[in-house]
Each structure stands twice: as structure tokens, then as C-alpha cells.
Computed example of a mutant assay.
Amino acid sequence: MDVLSDVMTVLRTGRPFAARFAKSGPWSDHRIGRPNGFGVQLMVRGTAVAVTEGGETYKLGPGDALLVPHGAAHLVADSPDTPPGPRCEPGHAFPGAVLRSDDPEATHVILCLAYELAPNRNHPLIATLPDFVHIPADPGERPGLAGAIAMLDGELASEQRGGDTLVPALLDAVLMYLLRALLGPRTVECRFAGWATALADKAVGPALEAIHAAPARQWTVASLGEVAGLSRSAFAKRFTELVGQPPLAYLTSWRLTMAARLLADTEAPLASIARQVGYGSEFAFAAAFKRDFGTPPGQFRKQAPACDPGAEPFRREAVAV
């Protein structure tokens, strides 16, 4: 698995939330804040505005996306003059739900997606993003994203066989296309500093890929520097500047993040998990885990939420509009 897919797979918990709202103006919805949520608003038909609690306004046209990486509260409406509407809590009343609505005469169609992220982990990819990120439609440059949104919209507009498999797969496809658009294939195209820039960097990017491809390997700053094509000191300096952590601190953090997910999703013995994430003994692993998470791995396992998206089918509910 590549590094970007790796990060999102490990950080997510449970099934995502998906809703399709078909409306005719005037209308306004209040998306409440959700600290561990990663939300996405996708405009399919018509135009709308998203207004933050700080008063910042984003105009959304067909094909536009608004990412809400930290689950910040906001309003979505057909016009900035429309009074605030009802509160909407994605994933609270309907965990792992698909809310469907369809009205061929509706003037506006908007898709609302929400992922729950691990509450005890904040990866630099997410931490360095602002509360709102507007990604304008660009079908010519991003045909894959436009196609994925169209397929997801069609699937949410009507209930068909196989939807329990297709909807989560299409949600993941849309998310990955959006992150591609956000990060860009090269450093100069990346819109944000930090981990996002590091991933696209010609030296640090390969080192990140190597860590995620083989986290159990006994990496050193020197060996990671060889992957990056830099001297030990030059690599350590560049990695720390871009990622915000020294190389071995990032390695340790990622190993324990993976361990937390394995504890939540599997029944593997602690010794096995320790080996999978690069610890030579269960004792060393347990000590590092407790130091980082504040609780022993056995206790963490009893309390942690599972993230297996296939554990339960989506709940299907109709949306009243």
C-alpha cells in the first residue's frame, strides 16, 4: 500500500457517512462541529455557499468540493441571505449510514461525506491542513475525480443491489482523488507546507515511502538518508524541517499508530503486534506504547473502536426534503 492510502486507512475508524440532498431553494443546513471528523461537501447541481463560524464564505459550483479536515462547524445554503436551517450531525444519528434523496426537479444536489478519524492520533497530514479547503471543479485536469463523483451521485440517488460494496469503495475513491488534487504530484504544486510537501519532496518523499513500506525494519537516520540520497546530517535537517519531527521520532510515532490499529482490529497477541511494528520484545513495545498513548496496550485494546469498514452494512434512510 502506498504511503497516502496507508495513512488514511490506518487513521479511519468505522464506516463513513454518506448523504445525498436534493433540494429546491431557499434552503440552509447547519453542519455541527465534529472534532474527530473529516468532512467533504460535494456540489453536484446548482450553486451554494458554505459559511464558516468565523464568517468566511466559500462559493460552491457544480463539481466543486469543500474539505473540512477537522470537522469544523459551518453552514451550507443556496444563498448567503438564507436564514440558518436545521442542525445536521453526520454519523451521529446514523453511524455508517447512507441517506438517499432524489428529486429530478430539485434545483440543488449536494453530497455530504464524513469520515471518523482515530480520536487518539493526529497525523501530520491532517494536522497541517486548514479548517476548510476549497477544491474547484476541473474535469479537464481531474477526469478521475469528476467520474468518481458522478458514479457516487448515481449510486446515492437510487438504491440498487451491491450498494453496500459500491458506496464505501466510491467514497474512498473520491477521497483519494481529492487528496491527489490537494497535494499535487510534485512539491511545487503542493498547496500546503509540512507533511504534504514532504511527501512530494524528491528526497524526503522516498524516505517516507520506505518507512511506510517497511515500518518494522530497523531504520537508522543514515539508512534513511541513503534512501533519500542525502548525507545523514542533511537528511535529518531536511526531514525535520518538512515533516515537523525528526526521522526516528516519526518512525516511532507511525509504528505505534499502526500498533493501535492492530490492537483495535485484530486479536493478534501482543508479541506478534510488537514484531509487526518493529519491536524486538513485547516488553519494549508495551513500554513505548504506554509512554505514547498513556495506557498499556492490553487496556487500549479493550477500549479502542474498531475501524473495519466491512464489519456492518450501511444503514439506509430516506431524506425528507
Rank of each mutant, 00 (worst) to 15 (best):
V167N: 01
F235C: 01
R34M: 12
I149H: 11
A207E: 01
R255D: 01
P90C: 11
L129T: 05
K202S: 10
A97S: 12
G37M: 09
N120P: 02
L67M: 08
A286C: 08
P16Q: 11
R191M: 09
A157P: 05
I273R: 00
A214L: 12
F285M: 01
R15G: 10
I273L: 02
T13H: 11
I273G: 01
Y115V: 07
I110T: 10
Y115L: 14
G280K: 09
P305A: 09
P26A: 04
D78C: 08
V133T: 09
L178C: 14
A106W: 04
P143T: 06
F300D: 04
S253Y: 15
D64H: 00
Y279K: 02
A93L: 14
L262A: 09
P62F: 01
G194E: 02
A127V: 10
A288G: 04
L75Q: 07
A22W: 05
L256G: 01
A222M: 06
A214V: 08
S79Y: 05
A216F: 07
G39E: 06
R87I: 08
T107I: 04
F314A: 10
A234T: 03
S272P: 02
S158L: 13
P62R: 03
I273Q: 01
T9P: 03
M1F: 12
G184P: 05
S253E: 14
F21M: 12
R121S: 12
G33Q: 13
A19G: 15
H212G: 12
S233R: 00
G229Q: 10
L152R: 03
A207M: 02
P296A: 09
A65G: 08
L66D: 00
Q276F: 07
L152F: 06
G280L: 06
V133S: 10
T47N: 09
L175K: 12
I126F: 15
Y177L: 13
L42T: 05
R12A: 15
Y250N: 06
G39P: 02
P246H: 12
V49K: 03
A65E: 09
R34V: 11
